[in-house]
């Protein structure tokens, strides 16, 4: 959904011009997100903080509290603490659905507006607003591109961790290449870690004499994969596709890297969009309820500039 990205740009514009709405209504919005334990969540923290600053500047009466938590249990306690402080709205990217559905429901019962980001709750009636990337689509777009670009190929896959996000992405990918001549030689977990993906890729290169392409489920792992290929001095690997839109990888796409011509978007900036929509709902009384699923945009050399945030940590 490009609209959202545009919405974000419009917001920055509005803030820059100082066109704050006249009301100085005192409102508090809490943002509860996972601590920056890997690149993508680091991006989430960055974008949440950035958007909060802009929004607070635009609305003098607005206070945004950002709270990061290292795991599900501490996120649940953090939610309790935030509610005690008195909040009007909550933007939450839950660690996992099962553990946090209950605590979020409790917050909701206090009359707080609930925006859920990225990971759906077990009970979808709780959230007033749901903003998420499209995991099956991320896999599908990558698979589709591979099928069209290579036609017939032997490929290897490096998965993340055995959780829902990974399964959805994998299923999307598998569906896209179904019936094609793309043959998956092996699928192993790289734990969304550069170092682990490096090891898995080294071993793939030992295990298989010829590999045409690699799909790994995010850009962090792509860093390890590219290095392993480079060190092996193998020339058979023609294509590596990552995902999520890490700035280093977007830059490669923009620079026309031969091995990495595309990327599939799953932007951590979605938290900023969610926050912006929530705040405008509170102030402007625009109805923002519902479900907003972001496209898994295919980033190519042509559109790469739009998605390049050099200051973001991710």
């Amino acid at each position: 959904m490009k609209k959202l990205m545009i919405g974000l740009a419009a917001l920055s514009l509005a803030a820059g011009l100082g066109v704050a709405s006249a009301e100085d209504q005192k409102l508090t919005v809490a943002v509860s997100i996972p601590a920056a334990d890997h690149g993508w969540t680091g991006g989430v923290v960055y974008h949440a903080t950035r958007a909060a600053k802009l929004l607070e500047a635009a609305h003098p009466g607005l206070k945004i509290i950002i709270k990061t938590s290292p795991d599900g249990a501490s996120q649940a306690s953090a939610l309790e603490d935030l509610t005690t402080q008195g909040i009007n709205a909550l933007v939450v990217l839950p660690h996992n659905s099962d553990e946090l559905t209950g605590p979020i429901k409790k917050v909701k019962s206090k009359g707080v507006f609930i925006t859920v980001v990225d990971r759906a709750l077990s009970d979808p009636t709780i959230n007033d607003l749901y903003v998420a990337g499209n995991n099956p689509e991320l896999g599908r777009v990558a698979g589709q591109y591979m099928k069209e670009k290579l036609g017939k190929a032997d490929i290897v896959v490096i998965r993340g961790l055995p959780i829902v996000i990974d399964e959805e992405r994998q299923k999307g990918f598998d569906d896209a290449i179904k019936g094609s001549d793309i043959k998956v030689l092996d699928k192993q977990f790289g734990n969304w870690s550069r170092d682990d993906a490096f090891k898995v890729m080294q071993d793939y290169l030992t295990k298989f004499a010829k590999i045409d392409a690699v799909w790994c489920q995010d850009d962090d792992m792509a860093v390890g994969v590219l290095e392993a290929i480079k060190q092996s001095k193998r020339t058979d690997v023609k294509l590596v596709i990552g995902g999520a839109g890490m700035k280093d990888m977007i830059k490669k796409v923009a620079d026309g890297d031969a091995m990495m011509p595309v990327n599939v978007l799953y932007p951590p900036a979605m938290v900023a969009s969610a926050l912006e929509m929530t705040v405008s709902g509170l102030y402007d009384k625009v109805p923002v309820r519902g479900k907003y699923i972001l496209d898994a945009t295919l980033v190519t050399k042509e559109n790469a500039k739009e998605f390049y945030f050099p200051d973001s940590p991710f």
Binding site: H38, G39, G42, W192, S193, D195, F198, G224, E227
Partner: peptide
Amino acid sequence: PRLGSANSATGL
């Protein structure tokens, strides 16, 4: 020198 970078998964 292996990856020329470190992130939060380094040393985990």
